[in-house]
Design a protein around this nucleic acid. Structure first.
Length: 420
RNA sequence: GUGGGUGUAGCUCAGCUGGCAGAGCACUGGGUUGUGAUCCCAGGUGUCGCGGGUUCAAGUCCCGUCACUCACCCCA
């Protein structure tokens, strides 16, 4: 019989790591709720054209990393590679852009990119994201960045930094782009890089290869070519970040892989995860709504990588969500005792006590061993003698102290012992 | 898509120049009646990734193949 393995590049999480995974996702989402963002639950797949138009045909994500397929009705659909396009589609479709603005939304869930897997790079990845749509206020850029920062900080992470820059917009980027292209044309670049330079010249700026990096030393930078208006916007974002106490590094060579970004862009970088160092990123996307058939409204948001943030936590020795999964462990001796403990399990759990018991008819010794491994604070031992006496033995595992508790008082006694 | 590394027990791995497949951890049972963590004893599993080749003999050498992994590209 052949067995199965998970699809290539897809992580499985199980205890205890899965508890950390959930805790990370929660920690990243909580600051968004505190800032008035409402949860949206959106489909995991969309019409392929949405991403092609929203994310941009020239991006790697669209041109070679999408999980696309035809459904039974011969419609081309794609497992979402990122969140913003889908949120914008929903905003437009349901008219949220006609209500009070900004519309502030957050989401969490899986995304898919068909890439060669690597440390911290998966074909199914989890992100937490926010989008603030409809108001072009630099304070919103700063708010979004501060939300992400608060999430990372609440996990206890310290080994990350925040890079920010401005990519300009329609008013100044085309001129800059030409200037950069002229500069690149004079460089001795290999063919792959040359192709990339033609597709999106900005991308060559953050090439990791030292030889390319050296060539780019004198490259013109967008930050030096911002129009007065985009520069003012950028300066205000930085000012608000100072107000918020969010520390950042200006990185004029930072580039984002999605076409829709304008003005402010940012990236959170951590050193502990191998080569894939970005744990979150985002920015402003002022042309996207219109591009997708909506009103010409601005927007700003981010996507944070849950998997990578978990790796960052592990690199820093943090174990979020590290709680014992059992308070009391039942040790039944014999069928009558087992039946009584099964009954008690319902009552205890209803009272908020995490209760587990030895299933499978293990002996006393094995059951006690299991109690120990469960991490429970107490073992609840029940045998024939106890039942005759109308009691159960409550044993504190750390100290070995044991007391007989009347069976009718077990729930209240346990709750008192656990202080809840 | 392009390079490098690794495939041996459930997990982490050892196995030198070919000569009977191993350790630690984990798991299970036991160390006289109904008490765990420590300690002692016992126990099991292997198509040595798969297919071919060389050889008296292959986990070990050669060829192919698949998988995993790290890195480039790119990104969360």
């Amino acid at each position: 019989m052949t067995s199965f393995s998970a699809p290539k590049g897809v992580p499985d999480y199980f205890p205890p790591t899965s508890a950390s995974f959930l805790a990370v996702r929660e920690a990243l989402a909580e600051p968004a709720r505190l800032a008035g963002y409402g949860y949206v639950e959106l489909p995991v797949f969309e019409e392929t054209a949405l991403f092609a138009r929203g994310v941009g045909e020239s991006t790697d994500v669209v041109s070679k990393e999408m999980y696309s397929f035809n459904d039974r009705g011969e419609r081309s659909v794609t497992l979402r590679p990122e969140g913003t396009a889908g949120v914008m589609r929903a905003v437009i479709e349901h008219g949220l852009d006609r209500g009070q603005l900004p519309a502030k939304l957050y989401y969490a869930g899986p995304f898919f990119r068909y890439e060669r897997p690597q440390a911290g790079r998966y074909r199914q990845l989890q992100q937490v994201g926010v989008e603030a749509v409809g108001v072009d206020d630099p304070a919103l850029d700063a708010e979004v960045i501060a939300i992400a920062d608060a999430g990372f900080r609440s996990l206890g992470l310290t080994g990350y930094r925040l890079d920010i820059t401005s990519l300009g917009d329609g008013s100044d980027r085309p001129q800059y782009r030409e200037k950069l292209q002229a500069f690149l044309a004079k460089l001795p670049l290999d063919e792959a890089t040359r192709t990339r330079a033609n597709l999106n010249p900005l991308r060559v700026l953050d090439d990791k290869r030292p030889e390319v990096r050296a060539l780019m030393d004198d490259a013109p930078l967008m930050l030096d070519h911002l129009a007065a208006e985009t520069r003012a916007h950028y300066e205000q974002v930085k000012g608000y970040l100072d107000d918020l106490g969010v520390k950042f590094t200006e990185n004029p060579r930072m580039v984002r892989g999605l076409d829709y970004y304008t003005k402010t862009t940012f990236e959170f970088v951590h050193d502990g995860l191998g080569s894939q160092s970005g744990i979150g990123g985002g920015g402003r996307y002022d042309g996207l709504m219109e591009q997708l058939g909506g009103q010409p409204l601005s927007g700003v948001g981010f996507g944070l990588g849950v998997d990578r943030t978990l790796l960052a936590c592990q690199a820093e020795g943090l174990t979020p969500g590290d709680v014992t999964r059992c308070d009391v462990y039942g040790v039944p001796l014999g069928e009558t005792a087992k039946s009584r403990l099964v009954g008690l399990s319902g009552e205890l759990r209803a009272a908020g006590v995490r209760f587990d018991l030895a299933y499978g008819g293990r002996g006393m010794k094995g059951a006690m061993k299991a109690a120990d491994k469960s991490g429970a604070r107490y073992a609840l031992v029940l045998g024939e003698r106890d039942i005759e006496a109308g009691v159960a033995q409550l044993k504190e595992l750390a100290t070995g102290d044991q007391q007989a508790v009347p069976l009718t008082d077990v729930v209240t006694t346990v709750r008192k012992a656990l202080d809840r």
